Amino acid sequence: MPSRLNPYISFDGDARQAMEFYKKVFGGTLAMNTFGEFGGQEAGAAADKIMHSMLETDSGFTLMCADTPPGMEYKPGNNISVSLSGDDVGELRGYWDKLSADGTVAVPLEKQMWGDVFGMCTDRFGITWLVNISEPA
């Protein structure tokens, strides 16, 4: 397997719901493991929470996430955003429509001064998404 770089997002107990949502947005294969599967009785109240999940899509995207482990502080912030870019207008607009639904649009998906169509939104789980649609080559 070649090396790869992909986002890994931490959630505060709703990782399962977030990843199921992202699977509806992007399609693909979703694998999830709970703390209980690997932590036995030590997992306690976190037994049903997600220790690790990975969504791999037909488009080649990989998104990983987990619930914050017991004993660690959940610190949401504005230090992460996920960027989607390319020239497949239908695919990228479809992602935008699903991600921005029930979320907050900071920059509407529209033509920008640099010539591409760009938008920025925060989904219902608090994750910021940047979508950039370039002109086909």
Rank of each mutant, 00 (worst) to 15 (best):
E37D: 14
M120D: 06
D14K: 11
W114K: 11
G36L: 00
G103M: 04
S83W: 04
G90P: 00
S81N: 14
I9P: 03
D67H: 07
G36D: 00
Y74F: 15
L63H: 02
L63M: 08
N33L: 09
C121L: 05
P2N: 14
Q112S: 15
C65P: 04
D97A: 15
E56L: 11
Y95M: 10
T34H: 06
D97N: 15
C65N: 12
V25D: 11
E37M: 14
D123E: 06
T104P: 00
S100C: 02
A66L: 06
M72L: 13
T57K: 09
G94S: 14
G90A: 15
G40P: 01
V89C: 02
E91Q: 14
E56D: 07
D12V: 10
A101Q: 10
C121V: 11
L30Y: 08
H52F: 14
V131A: 01
L63W: 05
D97P: 00
E135P: 02
N132C: 12
A31G: 13
W114P: 08
R16C: 07
A15K: 06
F21Y: 12
I80P: 03
M32S: 05
K98E: 12
L92V: 01
H52M: 09
T62C: 12
T128A: 13
A46V: 02
S81A: 15
A31E: 11
M51Y: 06
E42F: 07
